[in-house]
Simulated scan of single mutants.
Amino acid sequence: MTQSDNHIDSQHHSFTVPEELYGQRVDKALTVLFEGHSRSTVQTWIKQGLVSVDEELPRQKDKVYGGEVIEVDVPEIRQGEWEAQDIALNIVYQDDHLLVINKPAGLVVHPGAGNPDQTLLNGLLFHFPDNRALPRAGIVHRLDKETSGLMLVAKTEAARLGLIDQLVDHSLHREYMALVHGRVISGNTVDEPIGRDKHDRRKMAVNMMGKEAITHYRVDERYRNHTLLRVQLETGRTHQIRVHMAYIGFSLVGDPVYGRRLSIPSDCHPDLERELRSFRRQALHAKRIEYRHPVIDEHQAWECELPDDMQDLLTACAEDFS
């Protein structure tokens, strides 16, 4: 393994799992990759949510099979490196312990390669300076850059650990709205494992050697050539909705990675053609989030409306259908 294989800097540690660690537990594999740190230390990091595997929070007993990207944030190394930036935040709810934020499409959640700043994290540090003391500034889960909708952010360590527990045991529920190509007849469940694409390591794919992934969907509205779905995740794999919908033949409108090339239905309404040509992101919105408050032990649920670009797209679909 060379420095070119794994980039390490003062904020963030990233490792690509080599094939020779096939079948190893995450904690053991990371101990091998991150020299100088004991297995007990690595296990503590995993419990604290400081370790991700392909952008997902693992259990220490989860296994790796080669090709996964393991990322580690070590607070003592990372603190003070990120810049606080005045980025507007749409706060749906907040108290002393957590925030619920409606993230717009186009906003990256966390600094990384190609996006060193101007992220949600930079905005959090500006509006909530105390969050600098928390790993990832309190961010406990992510949305893709071009996916809009609700996210939870912790403001205290107790809240952060409690939310991580709910993410790991899948008791934190999220519902998405997705506009897909084609007419979906009825709701169903996709139960297919997801892992790295064998042909393109930057993508995810249904892969029998991947991790369990379960997606439930039901029809919300059916149009002439498209369907609006309500989607619930039983698991939380990277790009899960996008991968599963493409796998069953109903890719998301506008998805630049897993979708089809721009498809304009024949004889469609001019407004729909215009909207489809201008819609440059996956039509996916995290509409609802439901959890038990980790500090005050209260059930909470929040919803937000679809953003204007998806509303305009649906209006055009309805006009095409009429």
Results as ranks from 00 to 15, higher is better:
Gln3Leu: 14
Asp5Gly: 11
Ser10Asp: 14
Ser10Pro: 05
His13Tyr: 12
Gly23Ala: 12
Leu30Gly: 07
Leu30Ala: 00
Thr44Arg: 13
Gly49Tyr: 01
Ser52Ala: 13
Val53Met: 07
Lys63Val: 15
Val64His: 04
Gly66Gln: 11
Glu68Phe: 01
Ile77Val: 07
Arg78Ser: 09
Gln79Tyr: 04
Trp82Val: 09
Ala84Ser: 03
Gln85Asp: 11
Gln85Ala: 13
Asp86Lys: 12
Asp86Thr: 02
Asp86Asn: 13
Ala88Thr: 13
Ile91Cys: 06
Leu98Phe: 13
Val100Thr: 02
Ala105Lys: 01
Leu107Ile: 01
Gly112Met: 08
Pro116Arg: 08
Thr119Lys: 04
Asn122His: 10
Leu124Asp: 00
Phe128Cys: 08
Asn131Trp: 06
Ala137Gly: 10
Val140Ser: 01
His141Asp: 10
Arg142Ile: 06
Leu143Cys: 02
Val153Asn: 04
Lys155Gln: 09
Ala159Thr: 01
Val168Tyr: 08
Ser171Arg: 14
Leu179Phe: 04
His181Glu: 14
Arg183Cys: 13
Ser186Lys: 15
Gly187Ser: 11
Ile194Leu: 08
Asp200Pro: 11
Arg201Asp: 10
Lys203Glu: 08
Ile214Lys: 15
His216Ser: 12
Tyr223His: 07
Leu228Val: 00
Met245Leu: 12
Tyr247Leu: 07
Ile248Asp: 06
Asp255Asn: 03
Pro256Lys: 05
His269Arg: 00
His269Ser: 13
Leu272Pro: 04
Leu276Arg: 06
Arg280Ala: 14
His285Leu: 10
Ile289Glu: 03
Asp297Thr: 08
Ala301Ile: 07
Gln311His: 01
Asp312Thr: 13
Ala318Met: 12
